[in-house]
Amino acid sequence: MRVTQGTFSFLPDFTDQQIHEQVQYCIDNGWALSIEHTDDPHPRNTYWEMWGHPMFDNPDAAAIVFELNECRKVYGSRYIKIIAFDPSPGWESIRLSFIVNRPSEEPGFKLSRTEIKGRNIQYSITPYSSDKPQGSRYK
């Protein structure tokens, strides 16, 4: 099951050239780019691990694509996303984020139903991959 989240979730995965252009758009808007990765694909997992520092003063997108490829070398089998942070007053938050790397195999989620009081059903999802400990989930 293909995990989707972020700005371009409805589109097929970007090529490096397309990533470059999107990132350049962010830079031209004055947003700071950063790269994050995780091996826990749960949609409520908002705290991904950072790859290096946020990049504030790189005028060209090649720098971010360069770092992305460095990150892929180490965590190529994880989810990697690019985040654009808008530092302007009033925003000071994420403007845009999109997944740029995903594991070759995504086992998906287990849906479990729990019957609670009054025969109501409580749903919860668990990624199959999180059965294994962190760091050994995707190969």
């Binding site: 990049m55 790189n58 005028p59 060209d60 997108a61 090649a62 720098a63 360069f66 770092e67």
Partner: peptide
């Protein structure tokens, strides 16, 4: 430094 210089 190299990243800063990229594109230039």
């Amino acid at each position: 430094v190299l990243k800063k210089a990229m594109g230039g």
